Computed example of a mutant assay.
Amino acid sequence: MEKTDIAYIAGLFDGEGTVGFYRRYETKKDRKGIPRKSLCYRISVEIAMTERSILLWLQQTLHMGTVAKKPRKEHKMQWRWRCSFRNAYVFCCLIHPYCHIKMDKVNKIINHYSQRDSIKFNNRVINFEDYKKAMNLE
Rank of each mutant, 00 (worst) to 15 (best):
E138L: 03
Q115P: 09
W57R: 02
K102W: 12
V45Q: 03
Q60W: 02
T61W: 01
R23I: 14
S44K: 12
E2R: 06
H112G: 11
T18W: 08
A48W: 11
R42H: 10
P71T: 01
A7N: 11
R124K: 08
F13D: 05
Q59S: 09
V106E: 05
P97L: 14
V45F: 07
T50M: 02
Y22T: 15
Y25W: 02
G17E: 13
K120D: 10
P35N: 00
M64Y: 02
I126D: 07
M77D: 02
M49K: 12
D117T: 00
S44C: 08
K108D: 15
L39P: 01
S53G: 12
L55C: 08
K73V: 15
H96P: 02
N87E: 15
D104G: 08
I6P: 02
P71Q: 03
R24S: 11
I109Y: 07
R116C: 04
H75T: 14
L58N: 02
I119R: 03
Q59M: 09
I34T: 08
D5Q: 06
R24H: 11
N87L: 12
K108P: 07
I101A: 15
R23T: 15
K108C: 12
K3T: 11
D117R: 01
S44H: 11
P71G: 02
F85T: 09
N123G: 00
L137Y: 11
K133Q: 13
R72Q: 03
T18I: 12
R36A: 05
K28R: 05
V45P: 03
A48Q: 10
E16W: 12
D5W: 03
I54N: 03
M135E: 13
V45E: 07
L39T: 07
Q60F: 00
R31T: 15
F13Y: 08
N107I: 06
V45N: 05
I119M: 04
Y98R: 08
H96Q: 08
G15L: 15
N127F: 10
F13N: 03
I34Y: 06
V106W: 09
L137E: 10
C93L: 12
V106L: 06
K133C: 09
G33D: 10
K3G: 10
I9E: 04
Y25E: 12
T66S: 09
D130Y: 04
R82E: 11
R23A: 14
G20M: 12
E138Q: 03
L56N: 06
Q59D: 07
L58C: 06
V90M: 14
P71Y: 00
W57F: 00
V67E: 06
R31V: 15
N122Q: 10
S118W: 02
L137A: 04
F21W: 09
F91R: 01
V90L: 13
D130E: 10
C83I: 04
L39M: 14
V19A: 14
C40S: 13
